[in-house]
């Protein structure tokens, strides 16, 4: 029971930052909340709706996303798009992730 809980916590810790990176990359083409949620899940960044929706607003407030209401369809939707600042954040995060992944690879390589 405790093992199960602590395993979940560790996995969550590893995944935490990746959702932001996923959002920034996917929203290079504008998208709205639910569609983004599905797309993230499809691409392996499973996240909860109640984490994602506030996160989008926070990223917008920090200037990494811009938003626009689209009322062309029957259901008005708020479309988010990655800003220039967001693109450069995504580049930085990706570089960081690559260097981490190299570091992890070197750990397992030295083990064998």
């Amino acid at each position: 029971m405790t093992d199960r809980v602590s395993l979940d916590t560790h996995l969550q810790e590893v995944r935490r930052g990746t959702v932001v990176l996923g959002c920034l990359q996917i929203l290079q083409t504008p998208g709205y909340g639910y569609k983004l949620l599905e797309e993230l899940a499809q691409r392996g960044f499973t996240t909860d709706a109640n984490t994602l929706y506030p996160l989008l607003r926070r990223l917008e407030k920090q200037g990494y996303l811009t938003s626009e209401w689209n009322t062309d369809e029957a259901r008005p939707r708020k479309f988010y798009r990655t800003s220039d600042a967001g693109t450069s954040l995504a580049t930085t995060l990706t570089a960081e992730w690559r260097s981490l992944s190299t570091a992890i690879a070197s750990l397992t390589a030295s083990e064998n």
Partner: peptide
């Protein structure tokens, strides 16, 4: 200020999820 915006967006997101 943000309440009506959040409300409209959340309404859309929930409706999308229900439709799916």
């Amino acid at each position: 200020a943000s309440e009506s915006d959040v409300r409209a967006e959340l309404e859309g997101s929930i409706a999308d999820a229900i439709d799916a």
